[in-house]
Amino acid sequence: MDSNTIARSRDMTPYGNPRLLVIIPAFNEEETIASVIEDVRHNCPEADILVVNDGSRDATARISEGMGVATLTHPYNLGIGATMQTGYKYARLKGYDAAVQVDADGQHRADQIGRLIRPLIEGQAQVVVGSRFLDEGGYRPSLARGAGISIFSRIVSAILRERVTDTTSGFRASGREAIAFFSVFYPDDYPEVEALVLLHKRGFRIIEVPVEMSERAGGQSSITPTRSAYYMIKVLLAIFVDLLKK
């Protein structure tokens, strides 16, 4: 999707120019942060960028501030959930119409942001999740990871009564209502799957759109084999507890 399409769809919105914020949560991402910011500036120039630095011990914050990007720095490491929430709090404070989460490791491509934003602008959904599996995107996860992804997909699809293929995707766009909600409620660690269930319980309209992602350019996946058992248990527990909440 080119920038023309974005410009055109802007005209159809009830509130004139939607203000778009790209939130980049970053923890020790000095290798990739500059290229991610460049990518967003080049491929999504209408968006403002916010880096939320989660107490990095490396040059992440210095690099992003040096590039003139608004940078929020946690006084110490709070985890990805709190980091995203800080971003949503900022988005709400500044009155943005939409916020897109883009990971700092380079796997989310800025040229795909338009696809995420379009359903928000056209009013089809309040939250849009970019899925690696909807298209012939070519992403083939390892066997173990594929099994985990498939289990989450089945459970979440059953709860939402709607097919969700990529529940762990962090590449998402949220409209005003979802920004307001996330700035108050956002799960702590491994938040992606749980956030979907929370949104559903609050009656948000969620849709998936196909996106292409890159191999991560640097850094490590936060999901090491040793942590994946904890990941599964924590997320499943959180989902069922969420279902019991009022």
């Binding site: 939320v52 929020l72 946690h74 709070l78 709190a82 800080t86 900022y90 404070l93």
Partner: peptide, 13 residues
């Protein structure tokens, strides 16, 4: 504690 740390980050900015 989390809310406080987030508030500090926002206020610094």
């Amino acid at each position: 504690n989390k809310a406080l740390a987030q508030e500090i980050a926002l206020m610094r900015q």
